[in-house]
Design a protein around this nucleic acid. Structure first.
Lengths: 340, 340
DNA sequence: GTGAAAGCGCTAACAT
DNA sequence: ATGTTAGCGCTTTCAC
């Protein structure tokens, strides 16, 4: 209990000297090695606590080859969904003695590539990542040369077998689209990111299926699948809704897209739930408070975060890789009415 | 350019052998040491690129005593304000060759204390932190024993001289309160976190000053300064607004508080901007899109993040510590009308 | 059960 | 200008 006020840099050597034992004995006590006498344990622990010794994790990392650091690479932590994922993930990792290095790829493939390089050089034990583009050839190289455990968030890379936490967007989007179709919509706009990621492909499957159910094809001219950022959504929502014919309903995939689209609609003067039906894929905190209330396809970000951590720990412990599917839930609210 | 497909674990030794030179020569080339002949540089660089050698940052850290890692400790990364700060900060750090380890303290002083311990054991070069409680005795100990550079976010710890990025909440809150008082309000509720942090104290100064200007004292019974979390705000907004006499106006400090308060108001059935005047301190993205439009005191989170990184780098480079004040801006919107 | 010694990958004297 | 060597703090054989 009695700790030095200023612990300059107490090493295992200081402890060994203080306790009058060998370095290796201190190491054994610290690591809970079974071959340690009670007397030894007591002496060492006394020295440790009076000196306030704390093992140097850098030295341990170099020696053991394990840093107990997990990299976390996402587009943008200021996206509330990722923030919730990151938080839950960090807490789980922390509980198991791991720390998280956070990097924002900024939806930029080169930045992401550099992120992976730094992770590699930092010898992280694993990386949890939501890739910018599954198909980019450099990504495959990054993942392989990383030489660490990998858990992907809503991504699948062809030719590489990794663990992943996937979301069943299909189901939620299917229900949402069906809901709109049942209300009489056939001209449904869709604004989101590129099909080079699982997220969009899986959502489009649900979207197309709902149209297929009524024997229709989707109208490609109502699709804007070029970016998850708010700017893209703003511009393309603007375009879509000011062209003729214009969609009577609109879906936006991702929190930033939703934001950008709502800004555009406000600027144009189209009222959601009245002048057009609107469904958001992924929920923004506050959706419950403000009006209009937004219909949305929800997924639990905290579960995604916690599960990604568990899967990472499982790979590290037993080498077991697997995929996990998180369910989605469509909730109809005010915004998906109107428009006809 | 020609890289090996599988770079098992190329060390500086492999490079030295391949190039037929000494380890130290390779090291000199890698670090850009001036005493290197062109021939040597060429030979080493050839070996480096054919082998795909990348220096091990763990080994470098152990040797140099610098990890080029900055810790970032905040209550909760899923708070959009912190997320924006973290993102800008991470990007600036990255640009200068530093990585960020993220930890959520969860508004828990013991978790925070453990966070600092891990940071210490990981030998981070610095920590950027928004402390849970400036006054807690353990905090001082954490900061001192950290033995690293420190930049505080909106915090000041008595007896310890650190760099800090502070916000001029005073001005914004003063203006907001004056705005409410000018409209005829005298019963103004205030829901936010404890005065054990600079943020709240500084806000309360502005709040009191505006009352002082008209020769009045604030009514303590309208204050609820017990927590930044949404739950606290929900409960206490509920209490405040269902008691007699009830405030005719309400201010909430912090994004989560605002969320909790708005939920409570919705549940009670009080309409912001009509049944009561409402001002939020700190802006939530989306405030511009939804209705009612929320009056708020804004601060630029990105600037806070970028500046905190700059200040950290400055301490590391030249040891210079300083305080920086970020300005705030009050914007009156629909929500701060009504209530009388 | 305990100690001595090698070495993880790197850099910085110190020598030449 | 280049090579040799010690050592950052730790763990892990290997002896005893």
């Amino acid at each position: 209990m009695s700790e030095e006020t200023f612990t300059g840099k107490i090493t295992i050597r200081d402890v060994a000297v203080r306790a009058g034992v060998a370095l290796s004995s201190v190491s054994r006590v610290m690591s809970g090695h079974p071959d340690v006498s009670l007397a030894m344990r007591a002496r060492v622990e006394e020295a440790v606590s009076t000196l306030g010794y704390e093992p140097d994790l850098i030295a341990q990392s170099l020696r053991s080859g394990s840093t107990r650091i997990i990299g976390f690479i996402i587009r943008d932590i200021s996206n509330p969904l990722y923030a919730l994922v990151a938080r839950a993930c960090e807490q789980e990792l922390q509980r198991h003695g791991y720390s998280m290095i956070l990097m924002n790829s900024d939806a930029n493939i080169e930045t992401e590539s550099k992120n992976f390089q730094i992770m590699r050089r930092r010898r992280v034990d694993g990386v949890i990542a939501s890739l910018v583009d599954e198909g980019d050839p450099s990504v495959k190289k990054s993942l392989i040369s990383l030489n660490a455990a990998i858990v992907l968030l809503d991504r699948e890379v062809k030719g590489i077998h990794t663990s992943a936490v996937l979301t069943n967007h299909y189901q939620g989007v299917y229900e949402a689209t069906k809901h709109l179709i049942d209300a009489g919509h056939t001209k449904i706009g869709f604004v989101t990111g590129d099909e080079n990621v699982y997220t969009t492909r899986n959502r489009m499957r649900g979207f197309k299926q709902a149209f297929g159910d009524i024997g229709k094809e989707i109208d490609e001219s109502f699709l804007a699948l070029g970016g998850f950022d708010a700017e893209y959504a703003f511009v393309h929502t603007h375009n879509l809704m000011t062209s003729q014919p214009r969609p009577t309903a609109l879906m936006t995939g991702g929190i930033s897209s939703t934001w950008g689209a709502l800004r555009a609609l406000k600027e144009i003067g189209l009222k959601v739930g009245e002048d057009l039906a609107f469904v958001a894929l992924d929920e923004w905190p506050l959706f419950d408070i403000f009006s209009p209330e937004i219909s949305c396809v929800y997924r639990d970000a905290r579960t995604i975060g916690a599960e990604s951590a568990h899967m990472m720990l499982q790979i590290l412990k037993s080498g077991v890789q697997k995929k996990l599917i998180i369910e989605t839930k469509f909730t109809a609210r005010f915004s998906s009415g109107g428009g006809l």
